[in-house]
């Protein structure tokens, strides 16, 4: 069965497991459950005989040992009664069945949620956790960043690079490609194998003649390693001495750029993806680990500290009781 490959069973599997009415333990199959019940709940403590049901044990106790069975051994406090006749899964009251089901379902989803939090992985078929939505921005934010970028580019390129002001004035739908690629379009044009790149070859090519610094020339000759962008940024940075940090930053703010997802992305994008990967590798996981550790620790602490019936580690209950006026003894003054 394909299902078995998953390390965590799904809800149907969990719900289909037979479980013991007396102690709420669940079992792989009915046989195991029955042998569990015989050993744990229906075993005679006088002679060790294992009976099939509580009623059977009661009769046995009565006839063989002349004793009365008052309650089922090893049972949960509210399940010790002899009034229900249980054999395996038979005889469990409907109400209890439903309670159990609700509990299992609750626990299941709780465990799933805990795992999700612990691993940072999304549930199958669910949206990515919010934490990963680094790139999600509202149109307003986007516009704001664009405006900032424009200002920056304008300032940076004011000294004579002609493309920027023009591109900056372009409508929003066009500007991403134009702005970002204007400094380094040539690498993308020749190697822009991704179909999406076709959207702006004209703009890029137009800008190419003007904007590309001479240093970029050898870079365009470089063979692109297919999809090899992780190692790429270093080369790009080396071969593009004029690139300013300012031009990298805005690139990250423009997720719609068509060439984003493929290996033919520009240096700036490579950096960004790389950064994302690095974040995914270093940022997300360490953030998760301490969380896990702390969680376990605090849970333990609360278990120990918060719920002890008597927790005074220096004064015994007897000493305290001995202080009470009704018990206290005052030595006679001699």
């Amino acid at each position: 069965m394909g299902k078995k490959k998953r390390s965590y069973p799904d809800i149907e599997e969990v719900l289909s497991r037979p479980w013991c009415y007396y102690c709420e333990r669940d079992f792989e199959d009915l046989k195991l459950l029955i042998s569990h019940q015989k050993a744990k709940h229906f075993k005679c403590d006088r002679c060790g005989r294992r009976l099939n049901t509580a009623g059977g044990l009661s009769v046995h106790m009565n006839q063989v040992h002349k004793e009365a069975l008052n309650q089922v051994e090893n049972a949960l406090p509210n399940r010790q009664g002899l009034d229900v006749e249980i054999f395996g899964m038979e005889g469990i009251p409907q109400e209890t069945l439903e309670q159990h089901r609700t509990r299992i379902v609750q626990n299941f989803y709780q465990a799933q949620e805990d795992r999700r939090i612990a691993t940072g992985n999304p549930q199958p078929g669910q949206a990515k956790p919010p934490r990963k939505k680094v790139k999600m921005e509202t149109p307003e934010e986007l516009k704001k960043r664009l405006a900032e970028h424009k200002a920056k580019v304008a300032a940076a390129k004011a000294a004579g690079v002609s493309g920027s002001p023009v591109a900056g004035a372009a409508p929003l739908s066009v500007s991403p490609g134009a702005i970002n690629n204007s400094p380094y379009p040539p690498p993308q044009v020749p190697y822009g194998t991704a179909p999406t790149d076709q959207q702006f070859p004209a703009a890029a090519a137009a800008a190419a003649g003007v904007a590309v610094p001479p240093g970029a020339q050898p870079y365009t000759q470089q063979p692109y390693p297919a999809g090899g962008y992780p190692g790429y940024p270093a080369t790009a940075a080396a071969s593009l001495p004029t690139r300013t940090p300012g031009s990298v930053e805005p690139a990250s703010g423009l997720p719609q750029r068509p060439s984003y997802g493929n290996g033919a992305a520009g240096g700036a994008v490579g950096d960004e993806i790389d950064q994302l990967i690095r974040m995914a590798e270093s940022g997300v996981r360490p953030a998760r680990k301490p969380e896990e550790g702390e969680g376990a620790a605090t849970e333990k602490k609360s278990k120990k500290g918060g719920r002890m019936v008597y927790s005074d580690d220096n004064v015994s209950p007897e000493e305290r009781i001995a202080q009470l006026s009704r018990y206290a003894w005052v030595p006679p003054v001699s």
Binding site: Q110, E299, R307, V309
Partner: peptide, 16 residues
């Protein structure tokens, strides 16, 4: 085991 609450129960009542 303490009766389970919304936080998933958690913890035992520990007796001397």
């Amino acid at each position: 085991a303490a009766p389970a609450d919304e936080n998933g129960g958690g913890g035992d009542i520990v007796y001397p």
